[in-house]
Design a protein around this nucleic acid. Structure first.
Lengths: 351, 351
DNA sequence: CGAATCTTGTAAAACGTTTCAAAACGAATG
DNA sequence: CATTCGTTTTGAAACGTTTTACAAGATTCG
């Protein structure tokens, strides 16, 4: 309620002095400053962000758009970003697009007119032309996270998805599996496509023939993964292990296996990308490939604030972080323990 | 970049007309309006929120403070609030206090100077004097959620915690349990205290003597619940069932039981308050008492916007929502199946 | 002692909107 | 024809800060 004028009047100084004693203490004598501070105290004065940002041409706000806040990966990302941002004096405007490109677009519009100082965007779905043009109209710094795309020269921080998928697949291969199912994310987004690539590379490295029938593409959500798992296990010759491309899909997969009466890891081994707090409360405890979520959030904020402060300019680059295999209990040797295969896998007719 | 002046110039009208054709279309002729709209389009103009809210004395921002965003209850609450708020044209400033009263206070300060139109507060811990005085200094509407407190006459939307605890306890009793452990939250907060009360009331209703040795108070987090569960099960005569006061505690409890080599529900039955998306992925599937989280979020936003719009005034009231028992697999009859007890429980010396 | 230099304080302009009050313009009325 | 009355349009005043440019003293220096 109290304005800077009131403070000035009470302290018997000009408004400029009030502003200075708060924002540039060096410019005002100690005596006046303390008088001003006392006046602020008694009036319980707080400057209005709107007026301040109008004048300073910066709002102290960061926009954060995530694809699905109930996904533990994003939840943790939000936690990290909010923590660091607020530590650095920024507030964060949270937007949840719920995997809906239309909502994402609307959120971008809002952020644009809110005139946030920067945006961290975990974009949903693939990049439509309209969105990329909207993005390019936005004059504030944007850093992409989790899912990247080229063409706009934006900074991005992403997982080394090929490595992650490679690690997961290789772990299963080491345990002796040769028929490994993949619950793939949509290949229209980088995370989906790259993880598929990593899977294939791992197979190739172990000279296992890639069987397209073993990879089912689904959305990144639980139910689709459930259905895909059922389909996979009903194959004439089902996989002995399944690799789920993210956490939600892992959950759908676990639920499906359990409903099918399949024991894990006795009947089928499972692994997934995305570690999360309760992975070790599931029975069996889930073996996963963990993303350095917190680090990703930190790096995104760092890149963003660097740009905001002008410490960074020019066209952006993609920063790739490494995943880490977390071995727990969900991977065992396949039932008919195939011996570590001889050079040619095709030798054994697989029908 | 483009300002309202630029639009006015391009369209050949005054700034007032530009403003009107956007905000009060009725006041301007169809012809001019379309000219203005076209100018806006070609200049890609978006009004600056800062200027607008300075003039209108309202920011279109809602503050949302939660105690722990990684707690699925709060995650879902955030999702609900963000969804409805943005649907109503508000953006939400997310603050995570991480169960730290100091951070909560700092967030309140920030929200105050951001001059948000309203605040939804899931307060952490008990209400210290300093916080309640800070809260009372804030001139914007505040609605409490999850944890209420009196004295400031604020609106609040909470679960009927006594009912919830009653339902949980009663369910165990019906299954034949008479020694029921309670992993209680801190009784310094309403959710902790009321759930304890509900537990006792349920015992009383079935004429089971309350045994203080069976209730262990812990924080609302996982690790403390883990420790408490271990302590509980190492009692000379351990409980045959345990009731955890929230979701995180349930998880700690499950982990502890599993580490102790106890099978659930064979060796011990468990139930908890807070349902969450993966409760049915755990083995066994968790029987829980669900909160209507989404509804709580909706109601909180409704109460808040009603106050903001002046549809609601005067001192606030507490709105209590009902919980719902969700029966799954984690509750069975106790091992030495005690028959539905005769009138006097004390008859059978329990040592 | 006058001039130059610091220090400390202030008046006033700007930031980009919305909105009030009045102007401009026709049309209708007496 | 002069008034009155609606309808559109507009000029200008807010909103509450920060910041620039300057003023007024105090201090140092030549």
């Amino acid at each position: 309620m109290a304005t800077i004028r009131d403070v000035a009047k009470l302290a018997g100084v000009s408004v400029a002095t009030v502003s200075n004693s708060v924002n540039d203490p060096g410019r005002v004598s100690e005596q006046l400053r303390s008088r001003v501070l006392k006046a602020i105290e008694t009036l319980n004065y707080a400057p209005r962000a709107a007026a301040r940002s109008l004048r300073k041409q910066s709002s102290g706000l960061l926009g954060l758009i995530v694809a699905d806040i109930t996904n533990p990966f994003f939840t943790e990302l939000v936690q990290a970003v909010e923590g660091i941002a607020s530590q650095q004096g920024f507030s964060v405007l949270l937007c949840n697009s719920d995997e809906d490109p239309a909502r994402e677009e609307k959120h971008l519009q809002v952020l644009r007119s809110q005139w946030v100082d920067g945006i961290i965007l975990a974009t949903t779905g693939d990049v439509s032309l309209s969105r990329s043009s909207l993005l390019s109209q936005i004059r504030v710094p944007v850093v992409l996270v989790d899912r990247a795309f080229d063409g706009l020269g934006l900074d991005a921080v992403v997982l080394d998805n090929r490595l992650a998928a490679h690690q997961a697949t290789e772990h299963l291969i080491r345990r002796g599996h040769r028929r490994i199912g993949l619950l793939s994310g949509p290949t229209s987004v980088t995370t989906g496509a790259d993880r598929l690539t990593g899977y294939r590379e791992a197979l190739l490295a172990s000279q296992i023939r890639f069987d397209p029938g073993l990879v089912l593409e689904a959305g990144f959500r639980e139910q689709q993964a459930y259905d895909a798992t059922v389909a996979l296990m009903r194959l004439p010759q089902p996989p002995t292990a399944v690799f789920a491309a993210n956490n939600l899909m892992a959950i759908g997969m676990m639920r499906a296996l359990s409903d099918l009466g399949l024991r894990c890891p006795d009947d089928v081994s499972v692994i997934s990308i995305d570690d999360f707090a309760w992975a070790n409360v599931f029975r069996p405890k889930l073996t996963t490939v963990a993303q350095p979520v917190r680090e990703m959030g930190e790096m995104a904020v760092k890149l963003l604030t660097d740009r905001i402060n002008g410490h960074r300019s020019g066209t952006g680059s993609t920063h790739m972080l490494e995943s880490r295999l977390v071995i727990r209990e969900s991977c065992a040797a396949p039932v008919q323990a195939t011996q570590p295969a001889p050079a040619r896998a095709e030798a054994a007719p697989s029908r």
